[in-house]
Design a protein around this nucleic acid. Sequence first.
DNA 1: TCCAGATGTTTTAAGTCTAAAATGTTTAGG
DNA 2: CCTAAACATTTTAGACTTAAAACATCTGGA
Lengths: 171, 171
Amino acid sequence: MCPSDSVMTLDSETKAVELPEDHAEELRLWLRLLTCTTLIEGEIRGRLRERFDVTLPRFDLMAQLDKAPDGMTLSDVSKRMMVSNGNVTGLVERLVESGHLDRRTSDTDRRVQVIRLTKLGRAEFRKMAAEHETWIADIFGELTEKEVRELMRLLAKTKGSAQNAVKRRQE
Amino acid sequence: MCPSDSVMTLDSETKAVELPEDHAEELRLWLRLLTCTTLIEGEIRGRLRERFDVTLPRFDLMAQLDKAPDGMTLSDVSKRMMVSNGNVTGLVERLVESGHLDRRTSDTDRRVQVIRLTKLGRAEFRKMAAEHETWIADIFGELTEKEVRELMRLLAKTKGSAQNAVKRRQE
DNA sequence: TCCAGATGTTTTAAGTCTAAAATGTTTAGG
DNA sequence: CCTAAACATTTTAGACTTAAAACATCTGGA
């Protein structure tokens, strides 16, 4: 409820010592969140490899581009995927090499590279995405509709809370 | 509610065609889960590097060992961290090199390597862990106690659902 | 005892990822 | 126009990661 109420707070006049507060619950929550994601990610990674011989990062990149018919800049992709710029460079290189992506320098800004799916890339992605969606449905299959909605709400709030924490650290 | 109700099901006598069911909600849920984890992981990684010049995988490995005073085998660590065996080998190598870990071959089974924290490793980990806990509290700070509990419950159910999906695929 | 499978670890090859420095390009202010 | 700052991308060095193969050891029957 009160984000600024940290253990490190030293603003009290009466107490300058740090109070050893208990945040074990939040820690457990974080570990559980991480476990869920790792578990699901591993399962999806394995199925993508087995079924389509494609890696998860490649699939994720193609998923971003599928939503952008006019293409995206490398920076856009980097921000959306929440990975470093240098990472995208290499990923794109390999996907251009395999014929799934088309890369060109922007007409209006020679710094900018615009990438988009080729016909082949789009066709292959669509096939993978259809199956991928059924995997996800399978993985989350034991949750009721109501639970899915509630989880969505709580994760949205978690995301907001985390984003604010990031902003606070960046002053 | 019904895990076996997949798009790929072909057991109906009257319809052999695949029904294009809508699993967009589950897909959005998965993406949100992934976003939350990536966001928080990145923040923790950055703070660990800035504050202690340590990587997240190293911290995670030390966290496992801190809970096992008598040490763990590499396999145990690998299972707990949900990473490949080969990955652990390299991580341990570097942490032994830096004096944080002690590695010895088991007396009873010469295949087995038992690792544990050194005095230095334990001392450094404890310092990091204390601060780490406050970061987590900060990041999840906008959630109420009730929301934390509810999220714990829903993620536990999600984990179970995902584990069952994994088992089903492995026959 | 012997040995076929199981188990624990390491190695290998390739890919992913990051932070930081380097490079090239644009833009604004003077 | 010039140039400093901002911006987009690539490069670099190193760490992490995986799957699969290789290696080492153990175990439980025949």
